[in-house]
């Protein structure tokens, strides 16, 4: 799992990163977490955001769009939350969940870096 640890560490080196998790959306369980602070429990965030991903996947299916999620951006008052499902074969059913501080992060850069991390992540 060295690859996973490196990926999580790289995600935490994104400017303004608060926490990151690799989550299995078939169960809502985390495969790995990094960062986070006393106030946010990343396993709770993972379980909750699993429902977000599932709802969107179901919607896409119901609309017969025949497409997939590249990423989901959730904007809070003080944070951005980025959800990026893994696109390679080994990462099927998984997504990366990144929390960044709105004031310290560059959203475009964070999104770009998260994509690079996701593409290089082989499990």
């Amino acid at each position: 799992m060295g690859n996973l640890d490196i990926a999580l560490k790289n995600a935490m080196s994104i400017d303004g990163a608060i926490g990151v998790a690799l989550v299995d959306y078939t169960s809502g369980m985390t495969l790995g977490v990094a960062g986070g602070n006393g106030e946010v429990d990343l396993t709770v965030a993972a379980a909750g955001n699993t429902d977000v991903v599932r709802a969107k996947l179901r919607t896409i299916e119901m609309l017969n769009l025949n497409d997939e999620i590249e990423d989901i951006l959730i904007t809070l008052g003080s944070q951005y939350h980025l959800i990026r499902p893994l696109s390679n074969r080994t990462g099927k059913g998984l997504f990366l969940y990144l929390m960044v501080s709105k004031s310290r992060a560059n959203l475009a850069m964070a999104r770009h870096q998260l994509r690079a991390i996701e593409e290089s992540l082989e499990l």
Partner: peptide, 10 residues
């Protein structure tokens, strides 16, 4: 089968 087990465990 489609249950969110992590949420159940929480």
């Amino acid at each position: 089968d489609s249950i969110n087990v992590a949420r159940l465990h929480l």
